[in-house]
Design a protein around this nucleic acid. Sequence first.
DNA 1: CAGTGAGCGAGCTTCCGCTTGACTT
Length: 766
Amino acid sequence: MRRLVIVESPAKARTISQYLGPDYVVESSIGHIRDLPSSAREIPDKFKKEKWARLGVNIDAGFEPLYVVPSNKNEQVKKLKALLKDADELYLATDEDREGEAIAWHLLEVLKPRVPVYRMVFHEITRSAIEEAIQNPRDLDEYLVRAQETRRILDRLFGYEVSPVLWKKVAPRLSAGRVQSVAVRLVVEREQQRMRFKTAGFWDVDASLASREGNTEPFGARLIELDGKRVAQGRDFNPETGELANSDAVLLDETQAKAVAANVESATFAVVDVSERPFTQRPPAPFITSSLQQEAARKLRYSAQRTMQVAQRLYENGYITYMRTDSPTLSSQAVDAARRQVTSLYGGEYLPDRPRVYTAKSKGAQEAHEAIRPAGETFRTPDQVARELDPDAQRLYDLVWKRTVASQMRDATGMRTQVRLTADAGEHGAATFQTSGKVITFPGFLRAYVEGSDDPDAELEDQERVLPPLRQGQEVDAREVEAKGHETQPPARYTEASLIRELEERGIGRPSTYASIIQTVQDRGYVWKKGTALIPTFTAFAVVNLLGHHFPDLVDYGFTARMEERLDEIAEGERQYKPWLHAFYFGDPEAPASEPMARNGLHRTIDEGWEAIDARAISSIPLGKDDEGREIAVRVGRYGPYVQIGDSDERASLPMEIAPDEITLDEVERLLHQESLSDRVLGNDPESHEPVYLKTGRYGPYFQLGEDPEPKSKEKPRRASLWPGMTMEDVTLEDALMALEFPKTLGKHQRTARTSPSRTAQTART
DNA sequence: CAGTGAGCGAGCTTCCGCTTGACTT
């Protein structure tokens, strides 16, 4: 008896093959083997003429999908067919989730087996799990397959119907999609918050105190109340006005803060209250894809893509379990391995009485795999594998190992202490200071693993802070008192990791796509990276504008969650998929008039609405008004973004490396001034008597000798960039003649940062 | 490199999710 087992991943095939013995041939599909045609090139000739061919979905025939085997999968399909010829039984062992079920179905459709077919499923790759799975096969779940197909078709209709609207109204080659458009919307809205943000200044007073006997270390305390009123902190300000939002707080200016500091410096501080309360801290759950990406970004500064590449290598070589998972569950073998390691490395007091159990908390988790953990029935320590791994892989393995072991350790316990002290601040009244301490009484899992933080200050704050023993009524003296000025900070930009976490929490995107979402929004010119921060381009603003105004339902943050609910119903057999797709595409007459998209459906919304979309309006990002009350706006043009005052000729290109929130009205003023300096005649060339111009172009300011050549003529006038040190304000004819005589010196473009968005990516409407 | 806010226009661009290599940015 020869049995062919097909799984999704080649690495998985190798492992399983070891468990199953010589009667079984284990091969992989390498993911999906069929899909809708992705481009015109993939559409078979006989369908090319059909009007639905571009979509790959025959709408009028009940949303019938056209499936093709992409060229890079031909070879593998051929291989599987050959293996099937020699097999007596076929086991479809793809993942037990929506996509895995669909892959199994596609395999059936393509391989057309004439031997018995079994669907086998397992959630962990251990000998016992595999053996049990092969003994207990089930049938293919047609409902689950339909749910996947519905998801696939909906994403195709959304993406391939809405993207062309963007080509017509914003720029060619742009894209819209259920996942990427929400990602772009998040990034744009965060930038808009930053643009609206008004910084506010406030002061506080920090004291360094020490007990009178002088036998303890000095400790810091901060002024929190003055004359019975709370001293304002950053969170008391309205982020959009920069004004104090809480009237019960008192705002200190520099003079007052310094006066208070001077007053209390020589005063006696009395401890008025000491409160202690115990705390416990639980270990974080074992890694899933998103949390691994998050921690690798925090602790190792890896991009999501790099994390996945390194994890893939670790997985393929048998060091960790599968890296694309949404389940934090550990197999019982893994729990045993972790618990043994806890006992042997840290001792029995670090081991909880019972194993800890973790469950997925994000919406839409499908839990086809286990958590990401060290592979095997006993974990090898980072030291044991260090020699076999390159540094990148070592670091990531170390992270995975620590997190897994820590997840099966006892809680950390400790004591938080809060101490309030008062001192007399003269005419300002009584000043109350506060300090807090944190002492770990039992480290528990912290012995193995401390979770990283996006905010280094918070992390520092989180460290143990030991206060000297203080009792109520005790008096202490100030060693040093300092008034400190602060400014409120705008909300931080998203990083790769924080954007992925945000999407995951909303159930948008899947573990296999998190890293590629980041790639896509960058490739389309919606987002660029400055360090680790994600900054939207003005193209992104225009697209979010368009989608938000004309396709609000599609970029709603709850769209995917609602879709998942419907898909679950389809998977349960409680709902037919065709009527639902029909309602999405052709509309639902029952929908309330207040929801025009639901009522009209995607098709009519586009068909009857696209022409009326005002390309200029959606591509304009208002910045405010100038002194004369004229609107100042950024517009996205054919050659990238520029600022313009009203409809006037006063406009100036924006430099590539500028972030939207850096474009203040002052900055606009400066750019327009720069622009006005260009296109002027500096004088005449003494030799040829031709005029010498100062102009600005794509690569910054340049000199030109003589008039512009006739359009289409091959003639090129003599041109040269400014030399370093020359400014548009005070270049002279002599500078120009020098530069024209010795061109090819350093131009502005050579200083352009590599990370700035490309011009083509910023380019827009035709 | 090549220097703007406009033109002549065929055919194409584009989605999400599953998985690796074979490629050089």
